[in-house]
Nucleic acid binder design. Structure first.
Lengths: 206, 206
DNA sequence: TAGATTGTTAATCGATTAACAATC
DNA sequence: TAGATTGTTAATCGATTAACAATC
């Protein structure tokens, strides 16, 4: 264990470890090993042990890792041992699909608001939520102390919306818009762009 | 320039270069520099020059890069100088949102089919397409020679569907299901999981 | 005990960047 | 010409892995 800042690539693998543990747990398993996790994820077992070692000692020699224990440790480390409330900007097909998606709550996140600026969308029901106008973003982010927002707006407006979110103190943006956002270093952005994925895979389809 | 295989991290940045060039082009710009691209993307200019140098010499000393020329070179390199036909498995909210998304065609991809196994979804219109049954996947993939498929199905069935796609000769899978797929090394998988993004960002929200 | 697996070190591997000659 | 910027080399930085003592 160490106190130096831990690399981003290490952090980005922790959710995959957690997800694999959840999979094994659902199969009724109690214990796993770095080797088993490695095989399932396509990593080396040394990498998994090294990644975990940045945070503590969670295994037993000769035995491996107790699945529920390691899960709970990873949730603590990732800061998802409680539910984060999240807002969605953009009530297009994607924004609405995100609100309908049932996979967030079990993983530490709950979507509590959705916003759009199109008059015909404002007031529309999406699941248990109602689309609010963009004018409400500031109030809702402040009142609910939202720190994480999902951007599901067209590329042309994404930077302007991001600026507004940064201004309001939002600290993490899950960005579906196909644009690299310019934000202060303290604000995290995670990019999800299907086109980037398709284009980089196309390279290999010679 | 060299003929050794080029690292995946290099390839994954090329779509970002292309996207930035398109942005500058829309602003009416004719020429850019590695420094300008670097600033917009948060990379170093040396990295951009090095990445491009794996594929050729596209710039002019003292001047920089002609935007339309570099765009067309990147499209060639990425193998997107023609339109790829793509199929979507899963006609849930996400699958339908993907079919409706207008951003693919200009980037080299066209969704030509959508499949689901729920009887109530089969036959449903989604944009210009009609949801087909899973029984049709084999026929359509073969007839249209689809090499790229998008997986927008629940995690529990994703591996089984992936197996079927691999069997049919599909070579690239854009995977929205929250599971690491096990596929032969020759098959590319690109993962898009919002939960992984949210969880890794939550780490920093101490 | 014998076998298995951890946590960690040191070596290796690979990616990034600083620097600069070449040249537009 | 003077200034700017490329393409490339070599150095640096950082991430991965092999190996193994410790120990369950």
């Amino acid at each position: 264990m160490s106190t130096q800042p831990i690399s981003d690539v290490v952090i980005s693998r922790l959710p995959l470890y957690l997800r694999t543990l959840e999979f094994l747990e659902k199969e009724g398993r109690q214990v796993t090993s770095s080797q088993e996790l490695a095989t399932r994820l396509g990593f080396s077992s040394a990498q998994i042990r090294k990644d975990l070692s940045y945070f503590g000692e969670f295994g037993k020699q000769g035995t491996g890792y107790a699945i529920p224990f390691l899960q709970s440790k990873l949730r603590e480390i990732l800061n998802i041992d409680h539910l984060w409330e999240v807002g969605v900007i953009g009530a297009g097909d994607l924004g609405r699909a995100l609100v309908h998606y049932q996979g967030f709550a079990a993983q530490g996140f709950r979507i509590v608001a959705i916003f759009d600026d199109a008059p015909k969308k404002i007031g529309m029901a999406v699941g248990a939520l109602t689309v609010q106008s963009m004018g409400e973003v500031a109030r809702v982010v402040r009142e609910s102390k939202l720190q994480i927002m999902i951007l599901a707006v067209p590329a042309q407006v994404a930077q302007a919306v991001a600026n507004q979110l940064v201004e309001l103190g939002v600290r993490a943006i899950l960005n579906y818009a196909p644009i690299t956002l310019s934000v202060p270093a303290a604000v995290r952005v995670y990019y999800l762009d299907p086109v980037v994925g398709l284009q980089s895979m196309a390279y290999y389809l010679k």
